[in-house]
């Protein structure tokens, strides 16, 4: 299938902003005829007349023992979007409840999804296979919800989320992982006690700005972290100059180059949040 990994999706609500994303398979996976282990999901809509934007990005683990991590990452982004939707419905999206409720709910939902999937693969055409272990689905997750002038972020594992406001101030709102993770290890939805490893942040984005989320396949393509910052700022300038349609079309070529540098699947989601209209 030509360009099966070329997936530029742009969704948005004209009252709030827009988002688009792209995911590129890494050269080692392409060579080994393995699937892209990154996944992302974008949605927009409105709840009780108030618009929202959702973006979720996940990176399934690459080591060979994670045989189902491409499925784990797909479930992670779908389940995170679902959980955001449920929380909106139950009016649980607030500074008080988000930080405790979102991690708890997404972990529970993802556990159930992968367990169900694992059980379904147990018997096939009458032959018994061992139930797939949860760890074989291991994945990271970064999820973002924009609702009522606030940006709600939740992350487990590596990858980066930047917020660049309209004054060009760059911030990484999500706190760093508490333990120093080096040498290609990461926290995961399949880690022991993932609830303790989840990091959250909430920001007022009423003045508008850009949110970038990317997997470590893109992060590791750069010489060091300072180059990631430079990239995000320059990309914002290019977005203003050329517009999002043209930038979206340029992403496959760019991510092909970055993915060759890191050797990994690379995924980026870009969200433009318009400032709150002045009354």
């Amino acid at each position: 299938m030509e360009n099966q990994n070329l997936k530029i999706e742009k969704v948005g609500d004209s009252r709030l902003g827009w988002i688009f994303g792209y995911s590129h398979i890494g050269p080692s996976h392409k060579q080994g005829e393995k699937p892209n282990q990154d996944a992302y999901n974008l949605c927009s809509g409105s709840f009780a007349g108030t618009p929202y934007l959702i973006a979720c990005v996940a990176d399934g683990h690459g080591d060979k023992k994670y045989t189902n991590s491409h499925i784990g990452s797909s479930y992670a982004v779908q389940d995170a979007s679902y959980v955001f939707g449920q929380m909106l419905l139950l009016e649980e999206v607030s500074a008080n409840s988000f930080k405790s409720e979102f991690p708890r709910k997404i972990i529970k939902k993802w556990d159930r999804s992968v367990s169900t999937h694992g059980e379904k693969t147990t018997s096939f055409a009458g032959a018994e296979k061992p139930t797939e272990s949860k760890s074989s689905y291991g994945t990271t997750l970064i999820s973002a919800l924009v609702y009522k002038q606030n940006l709600y972020l939740g992350q487990i594992g590596d990858g980066l989320a930047f917020y660049l406001d309209d004054n060009d101030n760059l911030e990484k709102p999500i706190p760093e992982a508490s333990e120093t993770l080096v040498g290609g290890t990461t926290d995961s939805l399949c880690s022991e006690n993932p609830i303790n490893l989840f990091r959250t942040a909430i920001r007022d984005i009423s003045k508008g700005g850009h949110l970038f989320i990317f997997t470590d396949g893109l992060q590791n393509a750069f010489k060091d972290d300072s180059q990631n910052d430079i990239w995000a700022k320059d990309l914002t300038k290019l977005l203003k100059e050329y517009g999002e349609e043209k930038i979206a079309k340029a992403l496959p070529e760019w991510l092909d180059k970055y993915s060759k540098c890191s050797g990994d699947d690379t995924t980026v989601v870009i969200m433009k949040i318009d400032p709150e209209p002045k009354m």
Binding site: D63, S135, D158, E179, T185, T186, S188, C190, S191, L197
Partner: peptide, 20 residues
């Protein structure tokens, strides 16, 4: 083994061990 893919930290008996 070292240069193959990423692993989750802190799972089961391989806690702390990045590479199997």
């Amino acid at each position: 083994s070292s240069s193959s893919g990423k692993s989750a930290d802190n799972i089961g008996v391989s806690s702390g061990q990045a590479v199997v």
